[in-house]
Nucleic acid binder design. Structure first.
Ligand SMILES: [Zn+2]
Ligand SMILES: [Zn+2]
Ligand SMILES: [Zn+2]
Ligand SMILES: [Zn+2]
Lengths: 154, 154
DNA sequence: TTGCGGAACGTTATAATATAACATTTAGCC
DNA sequence: GGCTAAATGTTATATTATAACGTTCCGCAA
């Protein structure tokens, strides 16, 4: 919910995310195969949202469909989110209940933070209702400066 | 601000948009060249957001950079918006003051409506502030059913 | 008017992102 | 073990976007 400090030790976050993912997949009867786990780990290891071809390269010998299929699986089970603005992917810090993500993207350091603010979704839903539109999915992506980069910029 | 009825006569909308664009460009000292005007007209003629390569085809004999340059110009001067989710473009119904768009995108008929709801932006700004993040740009894209398609679906 | 200089455009090639189609392997189940 | 469906491998190609460089056009000023 808060912005990840750039110098925090990210290792434990990755380990924790993988544990949660194992659990969540078990609960759902979904198979977190080796490739899928490796992609998820790579996504988490990256501090910033990471693109499919960067993942592909990190995986070593693999073709595009391999990584896209893994990403599709992870998206379908709510373990990652896609950032539309960046054509990139980021780990979900609290999978288990389906939700659209709301993201803060630092234009300086690339870091991303996920919000899940009820009032944002409500504001959209209310405004949409006024026009008679029924909201089914929602993309919210704010670009700007994270706390650390904001300080640096003075 | 409200959803465009699918059977409304779109011709006048296009004509009006082009007039406003002429005016706005004059005001800004920007050149609305033939290509740029044709691209803007094509964007407006399309009921739904339209992609760069569809515009390219409609233009006839032209190469990608031609249409992308025109789109860049139109974006820079606030005459169109880009829909990130769709990699597509839509005319702005009220250019003249820079603003991020907030969009309602019908998954059935493809129609798009632009909102400019203060409360949405405020909700995002407030939630971002809590984390110390400074918002500079904002993408809001809701997917769902427009009033007409909602009725059809019962 | 003519020539200058920058903006706009043309053209070719290529980068970056994503999917189609089909063969092969693997994992779970009886 | 043998069956089946899911997962993965493999090749080709679609889709979206930009780089690089040459040419043309347009406003402006000598
Ligand atoms: Zn999430
Ligand atoms: Zn930052
Ligand atoms: Zn607008
Ligand atoms: Zn519709």
């Amino acid at each position: 919910m808060s912005f990840p400090s750039p110098q925090h030790d990210h290792g434990p976050c990755v380990v924790h995310a993988l544990q949660v993912a194992e659990e969540e997949c078990r609960r759902r009867g979904a198979r977190l195969t080796d490739i899928r786990r490796r992609v998820l780990e790579l996504v988490w290891r990256s501090h910033a949202p990471i693109g499919a071809y960067a993942l592909l390269e990190a995986l070593g010998k693999a073709a595009p469909p391999t990584v896209y299929r893994a990403l599709d699986f992870l998206l379908a089970h709510g373990l990652i989110h896609r950032i539309e603005k960046l054509n990139a992917f980021v780990g979900c810090p609290h999978p288990g209940h389906a939700h659209p993500g709301q993201f803060l993207l630092c234009r300086q350091c690339g870091a991303a933070a996920e919000l899940n603010d009820e009032s944002i979704e409500q504001a959209v839903r209310r405004a949409a209702e006024k026009t008679g539109f029924l909201v089914a999915g929602l993309v919210v992506e704010a670009e700007g400066l994270c706390p650390a980069c904001r300080k640096d910029a003075v």
